[in-house]
């Protein structure tokens, strides 16, 4: 063994572990979605007030939901894949929470990020497919392009064209607490935990 070997190795190991720990938030996440989930759980994120229009043509904004818990998903109505899962999840969330009194203290909101194609007609059809009735479950689009950009940025959602006219996008579900803060982010594959979490949050 040569002089300086042990100190150099120790330095490299310490630096490497520090870098890996930094990149994985302490070895807890390897994906950006996971990092985002952890970040908002630690510190709920106040959301800017964004104006939207629902499937019945009613304008509303995030501020209207103050005092209520809100579950949000991001969709586009022509979506052939994951949005169907999201829609079905929300349908089941409503079904599961129907018998529970606290289950009425939260609302659902599906926001389209494709205003170019999603007019009121398209939103209404999407809602009817899953039995969505406003105001309990609104299918909505932001009123303008800037609102949409602000929304995606504050939710930390990445939406990119897939080259075939559709989009690659996050399938996360976002929980906005009664103070209007983004408080939890869920993976889309667990409708049971979604309704449970929403009921729990609404009952607080």
């Amino acid at each position: 063994m040569t002089r300086g070997f042990i100190p150099l190795l120790a330095l490299v190991l310490a630096g490497g572990m520090a870098a890996l720990s930094w990149a994985t938030d302490g070895f807890r996440v390897v994906t950006s979605d996971g990092a985002r989930q952890l970040a908002v759980e630690r510190r709920p994120l106040p959301l800017p007030d964004i104006r939207l229009i629902d499937q019945d043509g009613h304008p509303f904004s995030f501020a209207d939901y103050r005092g209520k818990t809100l579950l949000v998903d991001l969709i586009y109505t022509r979506c052939p894949t994951i949005c169907g899962v999201l829609g079905e999840n929300f349908r089941q969330v409503l079904e599961h929470s129907g018998a529970n009194k606290a289950g009425r203290n939260f609302d659902l909101l599906s926001i389209s990020f494709d205003p170019a194609h999603d007019d009121l007609q398209a939103l209404k059809l999407y809602g009817e497919r899953y039995g969505a009735v406003a105001p309990r479950w609104r299918i909505a689009v932001p009123s303008d392009r800037r609102g949409l950009d602000t929304l995606l940025r504050s939710f930390g959602a990445v939406v990119i064209p897939d080259g075939n006219g559709g989009f690659v996008h996050s399938s996360d579900v976002y929980l906005v607490d009664s103070a209007g803060r983004l408080a939890r982010i869920f993976d889309a594959d667990a409708p049971w935990s979604l309704s449970g979490a929403a009921i729990h949050e609404a009952a607080r």
Partner: peptide, 30 residues
């Protein structure tokens, strides 16, 4: 000094392993 301390190339190899794995994490690709 550095060349001497890099006994059998081990510290250098470990450094390279860390630096390259870091950028293969999905989060870092993003």
């Amino acid at each position: 000094l550095l060349a001497d301390a890099d006994w059998l190339g081990i510290p250098g190899l470990v450094l390279a392993a860390f630096a390259t794995s870091l950028w293969m994490l999905p989060r870092m690709l993003d």
